Amino acid sequence: MPTQQAAPAALDSLPSPGRTTRLAQALLGTDSRQRPTLQLLGLAALVTATVVILLVYAASIGVADVLQVAVLTSLFFIFILGFYGVIRSGLNQRFADPTLAMPQTILAQTLIAGAYAVTGPVHGATVIMLSLVMVFGMFSLRPNAVRHASVYTVVLMGVVMYWCSQKQPLHYPLGQELFNFALTAIVMLAISRLSGQLSEMRTRLKTQKIALEQALAHIKEMAARDELTGLPNRRRMMTLLQEHATRHARGGPRFFVCIIDLDHFKNINDTYGHAAGDAVLRAFATQAQVVLRTTDMIGRWGGEEFLLLLPESAPGDPTLGVARLRESLADLPASPALHDLRVQFSAGFARYEEGEPIDQAIERADRALYAAKSAGRNRSVVL
């Protein structure tokens, strides 16, 4: 029995996902803009912890002064906690670079240089930390900033290495320090070059992304537009009709569906050619967009047919816009080359009824169009 009771107790003591999430929110906050900055600081804390462990080890084996190690360790903790406080408080947002990557890099390199000077025979292990800090910074700093930080690191380490070789030649022999300095300079140069290449790669990827987004937008536009008239095509108009039906179901305005057919269009093609027919279609589309209300939507339905979506709005009658369009076309040449030809059209209207399928409203509009054509064309019928 004691064993059976201990098992549930052990399970209860395990941290649940909810606790882990709350802990992450407590440390990193909930601001998505600040989280990457705090994560970068977390990497700096990891490097700091590694250097502190090295300092403690050097002190424990008697090759580093305990007081110097204590001072440097305290400075490392002040460095991390100070930046953490600035970022969590939001003060970093006042700076041009909210990540504070440059000051973090400079301070980290300075403290690592101090660790290099006090760790005696194990000081070589700190050199790799210099490179690690620069690699982390490379992903947050601009190439110029990386170069400046690299130059600072090389100059600083040159001064520290020379000073150490003069003050403690036993642990810092001049030949070894020259080698360490050359190695540091080469690594910093390589990181600086890689930073430039990384920046160029990011720029290319960003440019390619923008180009792809523009191409995608153009493709979407082409897929939704009629190439000849520039009006929305049949697919796009069906989408708009469905959207308005959904909006009406949620309390939006009612609307009319209108199908327009240009009268005797086949005769225009047969008499004047398809180029003239295309010009007539473009002229009609242009005039319709000028005359109709801004809330009205017109698209090419197919061939010489156009579909209109006409929202009801007080106090006007949606059918009046089509009447104005007919009147304006009576004074407008069908095309620049056909001054005496006028465009006439028949129109069928159907008022969308709540809950009915869009296809049903379109079918009623089509029946109304057929009635208009049967009655002599150049007129409108409402069903």
Rank of each mutant, 00 (worst) to 15 (best):
G252K: 01
Q289H: 10
S346H: 02
S335W: 08
L292E: 13
A330E: 15
A249D: 12
V280E: 08
Q289S: 15
A285W: 05
T294C: 10
Y352S: 00
G251D: 12
F256V: 07
F284A: 13
R247Q: 00
R326G: 08
F345R: 02
L292I: 15
T295E: 13
D340Q: 11
G316K: 12
A347C: 11
H339P: 03
D278S: 11
N269M: 10
N267K: 11
L307K: 01
G252D: 01
L325A: 07
L281M: 15
A347W: 07
L325E: 04
A249S: 14
G273I: 08
G303K: 13
L310M: 04
A283T: 14
T319Y: 01
I268Y: 07
S313C: 07
T286D: 14
R324N: 13
H264G: 06
V280R: 07
A350I: 07
A334K: 05
L281Q: 10
V322C: 15
I268H: 03
E312I: 04
L309Q: 00
E327D: 13
R254S: 07
N267V: 14
V322E: 10
R250F: 10
K266P: 09
L307V: 05
S335A: 15
S328G: 07
R342P: 13
V343Q: 06
A283E: 14
F255P: 00
A347K: 06
S335N: 09
H244R: 01
L325N: 03
A347Y: 05
D263E: 02
D263T: 02
A276M: 06
A279N: 12
R282W: 09
I268S: 05
D340C: 02
A283P: 03
G302M: 12
F345E: 03
E304P: 14
A276P: 05
L308P: 03
P318R: 02
G303E: 03
D278C: 07
D263R: 06
E304D: 15
H339V: 07
R247T: 00
L292K: 08
P336G: 09
E327Q: 12
L309C: 00
A323M: 10
N267Q: 14
S313T: 08
A334H: 12
G321P: 12
A347T: 08
E327F: 05
G302S: 12
L307G: 03
A275W: 09
R324L: 14
G303D: 11
L310D: 06
F255H: 00
A285R: 07
G252C: 08
F345S: 04
G299A: 07
T271C: 11
M297W: 00
M297Q: 04
R250N: 12
V291I: 15
S335R: 01
C258M: 14
A350N: 02
Q287H: 06
I268L: 09
R247I: 00
N269C: 09
I260H: 01
D331L: 08
R326A: 13
R351V: 00
T319Q: 08
G277R: 09
D296A: 03
F345T: 05
Y272E: 09
K266W: 07
L320R: 13
G299K: 04
G273H: 11
D317K: 03
T294D: 15
F306H: 04
D278W: 04
F284P: 10
A337M: 12
A245S: 06
R282F: 10
A275M: 13
N269A: 08
L329H: 04
G316H: 15
L292V: 15
